[in-house]
Design a protein around this nucleic acid. Sequence first.
DNA 1: CTGTTTTCCTACTGCTCTGGTAGGAATTAG
DNA 2: CTAATTCCTACCAGAGCAGTAGGAAAACAG
Lengths: 146, 146
Amino acid sequence: MLSSKAKYAVRAALQVAEAGGGSDWVQVAEIARREAISRKFLEAILVRLRDEGLLESRRGAQGGYRLARPAQDISVADVIRSIDGPLALTPCASRTRYGQCQDCVEVSRCRLQPLMQQARDAVAEVLERCSLATLIAAPGTLSLHA
Amino acid sequence: MLSSKAKYAVRAALQVAEAGGGSDWVQVAEIARREAISRKFLEAILVRLRDEGLLESRRGAQGGYRLARPAQDISVADVIRSIDGPLALTPCASRTRYGQCQDCVEVSRCRLQPLMQQARDAVAEVLERCSLATLIAAPGTLSLHA
DNA sequence: CTGTTTTCCTACTGCTCTGGTAGGAATTAG
DNA sequence: CTAATTCCTACCAGAGCAGTAGGAAAACAG
């Protein structure tokens, strides 16, 4: 399950992407209002997305956030990973942050790992293919390749 | 990420399936030894799998656990869901335990839900297709349809 | 240069979940 | 009856989650 932080993050990223084609600065308070999220809580989320290189920020009056890259170059997977970490079900199946499972005796002989990698590939395929632009463009197109 | 409980559960289920073709009673202590899991901890896991209908148990001397169904009729998804709950990334995308997300304002207009369902379908496809029998049979066959 | 807007940083809190541990009751085989 | 084994209840420490609070730092407007 995703954390609510991650869900908020995707929604917030969509708001940023939509405002002025993603090139205008959008304020936290504005996003918070539109998505009905606590402003303070949202702040922490956006700072994280900025630290991960998905957003840019500017302080002060008329400041705010905007996308660091075009909307079609930011996938939903990027956003989720920035907040919740790897998509994989086990550390040993993660490509972005591979690590050995502590409870696994020997990775090379693990019977689950190949399966876990398949599962990771399957979910990554879906979430990496879908960019913020895709999500904005058409609610209809998504169901097409389902 | 899976809990370590869920990973132990899959390994334990494999041990049960392997012993005597799944029809003999296997003791907790035996599984704990072979998989290097705390016996008491494993007990809780197996009780859960039994409650969910995947295993049968018998108390007393010569007691233990065995599969409630043939190994090819128990999927890895079944085991994982028994311990960790739904595979879906959001409640609103779960088929086995559908529920509305609290933080979601209106489900019918949620822009994430279709995508989350795709992700769920993708991971479920992999984990439901793979049974305990599949995992036991061949480490090689798995990588074939990757 | 002053005030206003807005992000940014640090710290705190209450709650639930995770990963166990402990002790003993109930049941079954021999 | 005795030994083996599951089953039940309770407990515990640490981590993570979902926020909340207060103010410092920066940028712009005038």
